[in-house]
Design a protein around this nucleic acid. Structure first.
Length: 501
RNA sequence: GGGCCGUUAGCUCAACUGGCAGAGCAACUGACUCUUAAUCAGUAGGUUGAAGGUUCGAUUCCUUCACGGCUCACCA
């Protein structure tokens, strides 16, 4: 039925051969005396003579990644989770029978090896084997050693293979993990409490986005996967958890691109008694903390494409991040005439003239948003806070005291991407209710992304929420930024793909 | 969802204007006791993503579909 290539048939036959010889090809345990990385770290600089004198015996284990056979001797490289080391197997040293058995191992198999650590005449740290053990047999051939696995579809679908043969891949995910760890440290050191709030919500709130819908059978109730934790975290601020954060998944039923995966990881944190200015300072500090702690630098390479050419730049988190009001950014960075920005009709005309796609139902504020996306965002390379957004684009933010058409909100842009979004939280329950009502009417007129009415959230605010500022940071994009990754799929281990055909 | 590009051996890639589908690595057989993209000699490996169509003849041209990449729209 199933077509099996000769390569696999041969390997399956080998498994049987080992069994026939009384060798279990999948043994239960194997005691390792040291990890490879540790040996590389400790002994790479030592001379061959010193190593010989110390007569160091080790038992290592790892996956065979390459092999160079020379008749009665073989060099191979084995890799464990910590590093890759060369092993030298000589017939005279391990015996004829053992050598014949070893010769049946394939690239991709896990083997254990005991022997003396020394160096070859070329100076490479090498374990000179006295004994080898088959730990686990591999049935599928690994991709080519030189080119690795390049087919991006296979890399994402079979990430396990990608991780085996493309060493840089693991490093990206190590960095991702360390970045998240640094975020946690940074916040917990400042007395923020990490919490987990519902991912399944009956009213999906906290962001303008289309949710995924699911159904709970026992409760006979439709539920939505959350688009943001925001409204629950604010309920906690109401309840007295005045410094709170959550790092977890959000789900949005929208397009997939190099910057969007349907499930993505967000940090959201809330701080009572402060405003968005405080958060800007804290955000700058946070970026420098990650840079220093994880990478030991505040300057990062940045690859981008301009006019079809790949170019290299540098992102610098050292200088103070610029803070530019939204409206000013349109004129100063977007080079849109001031009278156009101030006149909704002219703005629409300007947008159409420059082929910015508008929809008929777009309000003046939405037109501004689109002008921003089109003319300003592509120019925001070094870290910059865009501040003071139009009220209508921000249904959960607090109005500015001196200009109620604007809200106290900022978004942080780096490398032409939106990385963070923050604002002084709206805590006036009556104002909040009116804004929800406005969103509901937009929803009724066909805007599937508009916010829902959340009466329990209003009730929480009615009990009183202290003045609070909150911020969300997209972790995937943050990881892209720090690892200079061109696609969000390169920082997500298993990105969403269609079913394999 | 739209546009452009791609899918050939396990992997990385060739095959001119439609004319016998090829190489390197991996595999297999053999030689080789310090190699490292080991080397040398030989062998095998293919429904060219799928289904139709045009043609004497299709990897190549056309149509539809599947999957992927980039990009636009939407969005963080």
């Amino acid at each position: 039925m199933e077509e099996i290539s000769d390569l696999i048939k041969i390997r399956r036959a080998k498994v049987q051969e080992f069994r026939d010889l009384g060798v279990n090809p999948y043994i239960n345990r194997f005691k390792v005396s040291e990890f490879i990385g540790k040996l590389l770290e400790t002994f790479s600089e030592e001379t061959k003579e010193d190593l010989e004198e110390k007569n160091l015996q080790y038992t290592l284990a790892g996956r065979i990644l390459s092999r160079r056979k020379h008749g009665k001797t073989t060099f191979c490289n084995i890799k464990d989770g910590t590093g890759l080391i060369q092993v030298y197997i000589k017939k005279n040293d391990i015996g004829e029978e053992a050598y014949d058995l070893f010769s049946k191992y394939d690239i991709g198999d896990f083997m254990g090896v005991t022997g003396k650590l020394s160096k070859t005449k070329t100076g490479e740290l090498t374990l000179f084997a006295k004994e080898t053990t088959l730990l686990s047999k591999s049935l599928l051939p690994l991709p080519e050693k030189w080119h690795g696995l390049k087919d991006v579809e296979l890399r994402y679908r079979q990430r396990y293979v990608d991780l085996i043969v493309n060493p840089d891949v693991k490093q990206v995910f190590v960095y991702r993990s360390k970045i998240i760890q640094a975020l946690r440290e940074f916040l917990t050191d400042r007395d923020y409490l990490e919490v987990e709030t519902p991912m399944m919500q009956s009213i999906p709130g906290g962001a303008t986005a289309k949710p995924f819908k699911t159904h709970h059978n026992a409760l006979n109730m439709d539920l939505y996967l959350r688009v943001a934790p925001e409204l629950y975290l604010k309920r906690l601020v109401v309840g007295g958890i005045e410094r709170v954060f959550e790092i977890n998944r959000n789900f949005r039923n929208e397009g997939i691109s190099t910057e969007h995966n349907p499930e993505f990881t967000m940090l959201e944190f809330y701080t009572a008694y402060v405003d968005y200015h405080y958060l800007m300072d804290l955000t700058e500090e946070l970026f420098r903390y990650i840079g220093t702690k994880v990478f030991g630098t505040l300057k990062f390479p940045y690859t981008y494409v301009e006019n079809g050419e790949e170019k290299e730049g540098t992102l610098d988190f050292e200088p103070a991040f610029k803070r530019i009001p939204f409206k000013e950014s349109l004129t100063e960075i977007g080079n849109i005439p001031a009278d156009t920005v101030n006149d909704p009709q002219k703005a629409v005309a300007y947008a159409l003239e420059h082929k910015v796609p508008l929809e008929k139902k777009d309000s003046p504020a939405k037109v501004m948003g689109k002008l921003f996306d089109h003319f300003v965002e592509p120019n925001l390379v070094q870290p910059v806070f865009i501040i003071d957004y139009p009220l209508e684009l921000s249904p959960l933010s607090k109005k500015k005291e001196d200009d109620p058409s604007l809200v106290e909100r900022f978004e942080l842009f780096v490398a032409r991407k939106e990385i963070a979004n923050a604002y002084t939280e709206l805590n006036d329950p009556i104002d909040q209710k009116e804004r929800f009502e406005e969103q509901v009417s937009q929803r009724d007129s066909g805007d599937e992304e508009a916010h829902w009415m959340d009466n329990d959230f209003i009730r929480a605010l009615e009990y009183g929420m202290p003045p609070t500022a909150g911020e969300g940071i997209g972790i995937d994009r943050l990881a892209m930024l720090f690892t200079n990754s061109q696609s969000i799929r390169d920082v997500i281990l298993f990105p969403q793909l269609k079913k394999e055909s």
